[in-house]
């Protein structure tokens, strides 16, 4: 009698113990194969000939210039996208105007465009054969196969990240606090820095984090527009491809490991933010 009660003492809104065990076991096995194995492989391949070989590869001039270029590109593209994201979120959530829904669709557009097509579009706009390109050449400005093109391509693929995080959060927070601040005599900028920004800072950081991860790792769009000029327009992902194609496996994977470490740092920070500031970030998940 009491045995029966014990066996049945499970919630009716869950699956039988055996089914739960199988589902947990099955999904975790797949996660191990699909997610963890590739991550481990990066480090295993990088260290195949020991730490020294790996560190030597990272110290080479090509690798160092690639690391430097990636950092500079991210340092320009990410803040620009953050400024865009804040401006877009402010205009969209604090004001009512026609065509807002269409505008939001346009902001999301880069997520449905192949990075290669994005690179192609930039080449067609700024390339030597276009009107704009001809004018740029006449004025001795280079965008395609040069640094500005890489920044533009990076901005394109990471374009929606910050805005997408901020818009739902700012919609949820409403306009009341800003309006109160205005009635208390604060100026527009003061309202923004003392009321809005503190309210959105964690969501902003979250968006910037995701934006940065993608910016430093972008490959397709940059591959098309950079021209892959060694030591000049090779970002880390491009350098990885070149080294890999030259069968310099340890060098390629050593650079890859640096990016993988960056990905792990990003994930850790992201999880910390999600646990600490679940209340604010919940809005971005609910849409």
């Amino acid at each position: 009698m009491s045995d029966i009660t014990f066996i049945r003492a499970e919630s009716v809104t869950t699956e039988p113990r055996l089914a739960r065990g199988l589902l947990i076991g099955g999904t975790m096995a797949l996660i191990a194969v699909l997610l963890f194995a590739p991550l481990i492989a990066v480090f295993a391949e990088a260290l195949r000939q020991g730490w020294a070989a790996s560190l030597d590869a990272l110290a080479s001039p090509d690798a160092r210039s690639a690391i430097r270029l990636t950092l500079i590109v991210a340092a320009i593209a990410v803040p620009l996208n953050a400024v865009f994201g804040i401006a877009a979120a402010w205009a969209i959530t604090k004001f009512d105007f026609r065509g807002k829904a269409f505008l939001i669709t346009l902001i999301d557009l880069p997520f449905s465009v192949s990075p290669v097509v994005a690179g192609l579009a930039l080449v067609l706009l700024f390339g030597a054969h276009s009107t704009m390109g001809a004018w740029l050449i006449a004025n001795d400005l280079k965008i395609v196969f040069a640094f500005p093109g890489i920044v533009l391509a990076t901005m394109f693929v990471t374009f929606p990240f910050v805005a997408r995080e901020l818009i739902p959060v700012m919609i949820e927070q409403g306009r009341a606090e800003e309006e109160v601040a205005l009635t208390l005599g604060a100026s527009g900028w003061r309202v923004f820095f003392t009321v809005t920004l503190p309210n959105i800072r964690w969501a902003l950081l979250y968006g910037v984090l995701l934006c940065n991860a993608r910016a430093m790792g972008e490959f397709g769009a940059v591959a098309v527009i950079s021209g892959k000029i060694r030591g000049e327009t090779t970002t880390m992902p491009i350098m990885i491809e070149m080294l890999y194609n030259e069968y310099l496996s340890v060098a390629a994977f050593s650079l890859a490991a640096v990016l993988a470490l960056l990905a792990l740092v990003t994930l850790t920070l992201k999880s910390l933010l999600e646990w600490r500031h679940a209340d604010v970030l919940a809005a971005t998940r609910r849409h």
């Binding site: 997610l35 963890f36 590739p38 990066v42 991860a213 790792g217 890859a256 994930l267």
Partner: peptide
Amino acid sequence: FWGRKLVDAAVDLPFALPTAVAGISLTAL
């Protein structure tokens, strides 16, 4: 279950890991 939070965080790995890195690593495997 044990490790749930770790796996939950790791689900976003493909968002954070550069595609070229994923590419060469999957090829190596």
